[in-house]
Protein backbone atom coordinates (compact mmCIF):
# COMPACT_ATOMS: atom_id res chain seq x y z
CA UNK A 1 0.00 0.00 0.00
CA UNK A 2 1.29 3.46 -0.82
CA UNK A 3 2.65 5.48 2.04
CA UNK A 4 3.43 9.16 1.98
CA UNK A 5 6.94 8.35 3.06
CA UNK A 6 7.59 5.74 0.44
CA UNK A 7 10.74 6.61 -1.44
CA UNK A 8 10.73 5.81 -5.12
CA UNK A 9 13.06 3.05 -6.13
CA UNK A 10 14.52 4.58 -9.24
CA UNK A 11 16.17 7.80 -8.21
CA UNK A 12 19.36 6.71 -6.54
CA UNK A 13 21.29 6.48 -9.79
CA UNK A 14 20.86 9.30 -12.27
CA UNK A 15 21.40 7.63 -15.58
CA UNK A 16 23.81 9.45 -17.87
CA UNK A 17 22.64 10.52 -21.31
CA UNK A 18 23.51 8.35 -24.29
CA UNK A 19 23.22 10.75 -27.21
CA UNK A 20 26.46 11.71 -28.93
CA UNK A 21 27.22 15.27 -29.93
CA UNK A 22 27.94 16.04 -33.59
CA UNK A 23 31.63 15.98 -32.65
CA UNK A 24 31.36 12.48 -31.19
CA UNK A 25 31.50 13.12 -27.43
CA UNK A 26 28.62 12.31 -25.13
CA UNK A 27 26.04 14.89 -24.22
CA UNK A 28 25.76 15.73 -20.54
CA UNK A 29 23.00 17.55 -18.74
CA UNK A 30 23.61 21.19 -17.75
CA UNK A 31 25.06 21.34 -14.24
CA UNK A 32 21.96 23.10 -12.88
CA UNK A 33 19.71 20.30 -14.19
CA UNK A 34 21.99 17.66 -12.73
CA UNK A 35 22.04 19.45 -9.37
CA UNK A 36 18.25 19.76 -9.33
CA UNK A 37 17.89 16.06 -10.15
CA UNK A 38 20.09 15.13 -7.21
CA UNK A 39 18.04 17.41 -4.98
CA UNK A 40 14.73 15.91 -6.14
CA UNK A 41 15.95 12.33 -6.11
CA UNK A 42 15.60 11.99 -2.35
CA UNK A 43 11.95 13.04 -2.33
CA UNK A 44 9.08 10.63 -1.89
CA UNK A 45 6.69 10.17 -4.75
CA UNK A 46 4.04 12.34 -3.09
CA UNK A 47 6.56 15.10 -2.43
CA UNK A 48 7.84 15.04 -5.98
CA UNK A 49 4.28 15.33 -7.29
CA UNK A 50 3.65 18.30 -5.02
CA UNK A 51 6.73 20.07 -6.37
CA UNK A 52 5.80 19.27 -9.95
CA UNK A 53 2.49 21.04 -9.46
CA UNK A 54 4.24 24.34 -8.77
CA UNK A 55 4.07 26.97 -11.47
CA UNK A 56 6.96 28.59 -13.31
CA UNK A 57 8.32 31.42 -11.17
CA UNK A 58 8.07 29.50 -7.91
CA UNK A 59 11.59 28.99 -6.48
CA UNK A 60 10.89 25.28 -6.04
CA UNK A 61 9.54 24.85 -9.57
CA UNK A 62 10.63 21.55 -11.13
CA UNK A 63 12.22 22.20 -14.55
CA UNK A 64 10.71 20.17 -17.37
CA UNK A 65 14.12 18.61 -18.00
CA UNK A 66 13.93 17.00 -14.53
CA UNK A 67 10.28 16.05 -14.88
CA UNK A 68 11.11 14.27 -18.13
CA UNK A 69 14.00 12.46 -16.48
CA UNK A 70 11.73 11.03 -13.78
CA UNK A 71 9.14 9.97 -16.35
CA UNK A 72 11.85 8.24 -18.40
CA UNK A 73 13.19 6.49 -15.33
CA UNK A 74 10.04 4.35 -15.36
CA UNK A 75 11.20 2.69 -18.59
CA UNK A 76 10.11 -0.94 -18.88
CA UNK A 77 8.44 -0.86 -15.47
CA UNK A 78 4.77 -1.15 -14.72
CA UNK A 79 3.10 2.27 -14.59
CA UNK A 80 1.82 3.26 -11.16
CA UNK A 81 -0.08 6.25 -9.81
CA UNK A 82 3.10 8.27 -9.37
CA UNK A 83 4.08 7.67 -12.98
CA UNK A 84 0.61 8.56 -14.22
CA UNK A 85 0.72 11.90 -12.45
CA UNK A 86 4.25 12.74 -13.60
CA UNK A 87 3.37 11.74 -17.15
CA UNK A 88 0.30 13.96 -17.18
CA UNK A 89 2.25 16.92 -15.74
CA UNK A 90 4.79 16.51 -18.51
CA UNK A 91 2.19 16.44 -21.29
CA UNK A 92 0.62 19.51 -19.68
CA UNK A 93 3.99 21.29 -19.92
CA UNK A 94 4.19 20.46 -23.63
CA UNK A 95 0.65 21.73 -24.14
CA UNK A 96 1.35 24.84 -22.17
CA UNK A 97 4.48 25.81 -24.04
CA UNK A 98 2.66 25.43 -27.36
CA UNK A 99 -0.56 27.08 -26.21
CA UNK A 100 0.90 30.53 -25.69
CA UNK A 101 1.36 30.82 -29.45
CA UNK A 102 -2.38 30.51 -29.98
CA UNK A 103 -4.11 33.83 -30.24
CA UNK A 104 -7.82 34.30 -29.97
CA UNK A 105 -7.73 37.31 -32.27
CA UNK A 106 -7.02 35.61 -35.56
CA UNK A 107 -9.20 32.57 -36.06
CA UNK A 108 -7.31 31.16 -39.06
CA UNK A 109 -3.94 31.52 -37.38
CA UNK A 110 -5.42 30.15 -34.19
CA UNK A 111 -6.68 27.06 -35.97
CA UNK A 112 -3.29 26.45 -37.59
CA UNK A 113 -1.52 26.77 -34.24
CA UNK A 114 -4.08 24.49 -32.57
CA UNK A 115 -3.36 21.88 -35.23
CA UNK A 116 0.37 22.31 -34.70
CA UNK A 117 -0.02 22.07 -30.93
CA UNK A 118 -2.06 18.88 -31.22
CA UNK A 119 0.51 17.36 -33.55
CA UNK A 120 3.42 18.34 -31.29
CA UNK A 121 1.70 16.79 -28.28
CA UNK A 122 0.98 13.65 -30.29
CA UNK A 123 4.57 13.33 -31.51
CA UNK A 124 6.00 13.95 -28.07
CA UNK A 125 3.68 11.34 -26.54
CA UNK A 126 4.77 8.93 -29.24
CA UNK A 127 8.43 9.52 -28.37
CA UNK A 128 7.65 8.78 -24.73
CA UNK A 129 5.81 5.59 -25.66
CA UNK A 130 8.79 4.38 -27.72
CA UNK A 131 11.19 5.38 -24.95
CA UNK A 132 9.17 3.37 -22.49
CA UNK A 133 10.08 0.24 -24.44
CA UNK A 134 13.52 1.10 -25.79
CA UNK A 135 15.75 4.04 -24.99
CA UNK A 136 15.07 6.87 -27.46
CA UNK A 137 18.23 8.97 -27.70
CA UNK A 138 16.33 11.87 -29.22
CA UNK A 139 14.71 12.50 -25.84
CA UNK A 140 18.15 13.23 -24.40
CA UNK A 141 17.99 16.64 -26.10
CA UNK A 142 14.83 17.34 -24.08
CA UNK A 143 16.67 16.49 -20.85
CA UNK A 144 19.27 19.13 -21.75
CA UNK A 145 17.04 22.01 -22.87
CA UNK A 146 13.42 20.94 -22.88
CA UNK A 147 11.74 24.02 -24.32
CA UNK A 148 14.38 24.57 -26.98
CA UNK A 149 14.24 20.95 -28.14
CA UNK A 150 10.46 21.31 -28.23
CA UNK A 151 10.86 24.35 -30.47
CA UNK A 152 12.76 22.19 -32.92
CA UNK A 153 9.82 19.82 -33.01
CA UNK A 154 7.50 22.80 -33.31
CA UNK A 155 9.19 24.18 -36.44
CA UNK A 156 9.16 20.74 -38.08
CA UNK A 157 5.44 20.41 -37.49
CA UNK A 158 4.89 24.04 -38.49
CA UNK A 159 6.56 23.47 -41.84
CA UNK A 160 4.43 20.41 -42.47
CA UNK A 161 1.19 22.03 -41.47
CA UNK A 162 1.93 25.18 -43.44
CA UNK A 163 2.89 23.08 -46.44
CA UNK A 164 -0.56 21.58 -46.29
CA UNK A 165 -2.14 24.96 -45.72
CA UNK A 166 -0.66 27.09 -48.43
CA UNK A 167 2.20 25.25 -50.11
CA UNK A 168 4.56 28.08 -49.28
CA UNK A 169 7.69 26.21 -48.35
CA UNK A 170 10.04 27.04 -51.17
CA UNK A 171 11.94 30.29 -50.89
CA UNK A 172 11.73 30.75 -54.63
CA UNK A 173 7.95 30.64 -54.45
CA UNK A 174 8.10 33.66 -52.26
CA UNK A 175 10.10 35.84 -54.62
CA UNK A 176 7.47 36.45 -57.24
CA UNK A 177 6.74 40.05 -58.03
CA UNK A 178 8.71 42.86 -56.51
CA UNK A 179 7.11 44.89 -53.73
CA UNK A 180 5.89 48.30 -54.78
CA UNK A 181 7.96 51.39 -54.18
CA UNK A 182 5.47 52.63 -51.55
CA UNK A 183 6.54 49.74 -49.37
CA UNK A 184 10.07 51.03 -49.24
CA UNK A 185 8.81 54.43 -48.16
CA UNK A 186 6.59 52.87 -45.50
CA UNK A 187 9.49 50.87 -44.08
CA UNK A 188 11.66 53.97 -43.77
CA UNK A 189 14.44 53.59 -41.22
CA UNK A 190 12.40 51.32 -38.99
CA UNK A 191 14.43 49.23 -36.53
CA UNK A 192 12.02 47.02 -34.58
CA UNK A 193 14.65 45.32 -32.41
CA UNK A 194 16.77 48.36 -31.73
CA UNK A 195 14.32 50.37 -29.66
CA UNK A 196 13.81 50.96 -25.96
CA UNK A 197 10.32 49.46 -26.32
CA UNK A 198 11.95 46.06 -26.94
CA UNK A 199 12.40 45.65 -23.19
CA UNK A 200 8.62 45.72 -22.72
CA UNK A 201 6.73 42.41 -22.73
CA UNK A 202 3.74 43.71 -24.69
CA UNK A 203 5.91 45.18 -27.42
CA UNK A 204 7.98 42.01 -27.80
CA UNK A 205 4.89 39.86 -27.82
CA UNK A 206 3.29 42.02 -30.50
CA UNK A 207 6.53 42.15 -32.52
CA UNK A 208 6.86 38.35 -32.57
CA UNK A 209 3.19 38.01 -33.49
CA UNK A 210 3.83 40.41 -36.39
CA UNK A 211 6.91 38.50 -37.57
CA UNK A 212 4.90 35.29 -37.42
CA UNK A 213 2.64 36.67 -40.14
CA UNK A 214 5.54 37.17 -42.58
CA UNK A 215 6.27 34.85 -45.50
CA UNK A 216 9.27 32.52 -44.92
CA UNK A 217 11.85 34.55 -46.86
CA UNK A 218 10.97 37.80 -45.09
CA UNK A 219 11.00 36.04 -41.75
CA UNK A 220 14.49 34.68 -42.40
CA UNK A 221 15.77 38.10 -43.43
CA UNK A 222 14.38 39.64 -40.25
CA UNK A 223 15.95 36.94 -38.10
CA UNK A 224 19.38 37.43 -39.67
CA UNK A 225 19.07 41.20 -39.28
CA UNK A 226 18.10 40.71 -35.65
CA UNK A 227 21.34 38.83 -35.09
CA UNK A 228 23.35 41.54 -36.84
CA UNK A 229 24.29 39.77 -40.07
CA UNK A 230 25.12 42.27 -42.83
CA UNK A 231 23.01 42.20 -45.97
CA UNK A 232 26.08 42.16 -48.17
CA UNK A 233 29.86 42.47 -47.98
CA UNK A 234 32.77 42.67 -50.35
CA UNK A 235 34.73 40.36 -48.07
CA UNK A 236 34.00 36.82 -49.30
CA UNK A 237 34.68 35.41 -45.82
CA UNK A 238 31.82 37.31 -44.21
CA UNK A 239 28.55 35.47 -43.77
CA UNK A 240 25.97 37.76 -45.32
CA UNK A 241 22.21 37.52 -45.64
CA UNK A 242 22.49 37.77 -49.38
CA UNK A 243 24.90 34.84 -49.72
CA UNK A 244 23.20 32.70 -47.11
CA UNK A 245 19.79 33.02 -48.72
CA UNK A 246 21.20 32.98 -52.26
CA UNK A 247 19.46 36.20 -53.25
CA UNK A 248 20.80 39.46 -54.63
CA UNK A 249 21.45 42.36 -52.30
CA UNK A 250 18.64 44.27 -54.00
CA UNK A 251 16.16 41.45 -53.45
CA UNK A 252 17.09 41.19 -49.81
CA UNK A 253 16.68 44.94 -49.29
CA UNK A 254 13.37 44.92 -51.10
CA UNK A 255 11.94 42.13 -48.96
CA UNK A 256 13.43 43.57 -45.81
CA UNK A 257 11.50 46.79 -46.52
CA UNK A 258 8.34 44.86 -47.25
CA UNK A 259 8.70 42.96 -43.97
CA UNK A 260 9.37 46.16 -42.03
CA UNK A 261 6.29 47.78 -43.53
CA UNK A 262 4.13 44.84 -42.47
CA UNK A 263 5.57 44.78 -38.96
CA UNK A 264 5.24 48.54 -38.59
CA UNK A 265 1.57 48.44 -39.62
CA UNK A 266 0.78 45.70 -37.13
CA UNK A 267 2.64 47.46 -34.30
CA UNK A 268 0.89 50.72 -35.12
CA UNK A 269 -2.52 49.06 -35.12
CA UNK A 270 -1.70 47.58 -31.71
CA UNK A 271 -0.58 51.03 -30.47
CA UNK A 272 2.89 49.72 -29.75
CA UNK A 273 4.67 52.50 -31.70
Amino acid sequence: MASKNDVREHEVLIEPLRKLKLGGSLYTRPSEVEAKLLELASLSCDELITYCELRQGDPAYVPSECLLHFVRSYRARMPDICFEKLYKFLIERVLSSCSNKISNDDKTSSLIHSNIRDEVVGRFAELLAHDFKDYVEKLDYYEIRFNDALKKMYIDVYRQVKRGEDRLTSLDDQVTGEPKIEVERAAGSFEPFNTSAFTEDDYRSCLYAAIDTLPPLEKKIIEMLRLGFPIDSKDPNVTTISRTLSKSEKTIRTYRNKAFATIRTILEEANQI
Binding site: K151, K152, P216, K220, E223, M224
Partner: peptide, 30 residues
Protein backbone atom coordinates in the same frame (compact mmCIF):
# COMPACT_ATOMS: atom_id res chain seq x y z
CA UNK B 1 17.40 30.21 -39.44
CA UNK B 2 13.79 29.28 -38.69
CA UNK B 3 14.90 27.56 -35.51
CA UNK B 4 17.12 30.47 -34.53
CA UNK B 5 14.09 32.75 -34.71
CA UNK B 6 11.96 30.32 -32.71
CA UNK B 7 14.67 29.94 -30.05
CA UNK B 8 14.77 33.71 -29.53
CA UNK B 9 11.12 33.66 -28.53
CA UNK B 10 10.41 33.55 -24.82
CA UNK B 11 8.44 30.60 -23.53
CA UNK B 12 5.92 31.56 -20.94
CA UNK B 13 3.97 28.81 -19.29
CA UNK B 14 0.27 29.18 -19.86
CA UNK B 15 -1.15 30.50 -16.58
CA UNK B 16 -4.73 29.64 -17.52
CA UNK B 17 -6.28 26.55 -15.95
CA UNK B 18 -6.56 23.60 -18.30
CA UNK B 19 -9.55 23.70 -20.61
CA UNK B 20 -11.79 20.66 -21.01
CA UNK B 21 -10.25 20.12 -24.44
CA UNK B 22 -6.70 20.25 -23.05
CA UNK B 23 -7.56 17.88 -20.21
CA UNK B 24 -9.03 15.48 -22.77
CA UNK B 25 -5.78 15.64 -24.78
CA UNK B 26 -3.73 14.79 -21.72
CA UNK B 27 -6.03 11.90 -20.80
CA UNK B 28 -5.94 10.65 -24.37
CA UNK B 29 -2.13 10.74 -24.46
CA UNK B 30 -2.04 8.84 -21.17
Amino acid sequence: IDLSYELSREVREDEMPLSVEQQAMIDSAW
